[in-house]
Amino acid sequence: MSLLPPSSLLRFPTKPTSAVPAARHALADLDPTPFAFTRRCWVAAAPDSVYRLISDVSLTGTWSPSASGVRYAPEDGPWAGARFSGRNQRDGRAWVTQSEVVRTDPGVAFVFVVGGAGDGIVRWDWHFHGQGRGRGSVVQQSWQLLRTDPVLGDTREDVEALRDHTAESAESTLLALAERAAGHRAD
């Protein structure tokens, strides 16, 4: 789950529009490429089992310190094109994001984009690699900023702080996932 969604996904009252064109955002030309990270953790469960936990987005709040209330849209599920929403929080602020699943490969990968595949702001990749003679997996969680948006902040430092906070959150998420998966082994 991304910590900050595109402004079009925030659920706040809108301001009246004016005839004056919007000012160009200060970060409009910022290259998003360096705003990424990958974290890994060994989990005492087979890749298929871990994939089932991650692709059931309703469980996200079980291990994520910043996401809750995550659920697929009615009649959607863990397949490419499925949409889901979730509530996020950081520094006393809360907002709702909308995401789209872009890859499902059971036991191998689960990938989604916050904001949707066509105009997303952040991509989350989960990859699962068997290790330990079928008894465990290395779970890899990656985050990549795809584009800037005013909700990310007004300075490069704001975006760096978001990335760093999200990386810490991912580490906590992976550790909590490892604890949860160890109790739900399918061996």
Rank of each mutant, 00 (worst) to 15 (best):
R83A: 05
S49E: 13
D48T: 12
A19Y: 09
G116R: 00
P21R: 08
F110M: 02
E75M: 04
M1K: 06
S66H: 14
S99T: 00
V122D: 02
A36L: 15
L175Q: 11
G132Y: 11
W126P: 00
C41I: 13
A36R: 06
V138T: 15
R103I: 00
H184I: 07
S64P: 03
R135Q: 15
V102K: 01
L152M: 14
R24V: 15
D149T: 03
C41Q: 15
T148V: 14
V70Y: 04
A73G: 08
D91K: 14
D164A: 15
Q89I: 00
L177N: 10
R156P: 08
W126S: 03
P5A: 14
L53C: 03
R180S: 07
S68C: 09
D125Q: 00
A19S: 13
L10K: 14
R24I: 13
W42D: 14
V102L: 05
P6F: 05
T173H: 10
G134R: 11
G153K: 08
A117G: 02
L177S: 10
R156H: 04
D158T: 05
D125P: 01
R39S: 07
G92Q: 03
I121C: 10
D29K: 15
V43T: 09
T14S: 13
V108I: 03
P106Y: 02
V43Y: 05
R133E: 13
S169C: 11
A176H: 11
Y51T: 06
P65F: 02
V139G: 07
A36F: 10
Q141Y: 05
P78A: 12
R71C: 06
R135G: 14
L30F: 15
A19H: 12
Q98P: 02
G136T: 10
T148H: 13
A178H: 11
A22I: 10
F128E: 00
A176C: 07
L177H: 11
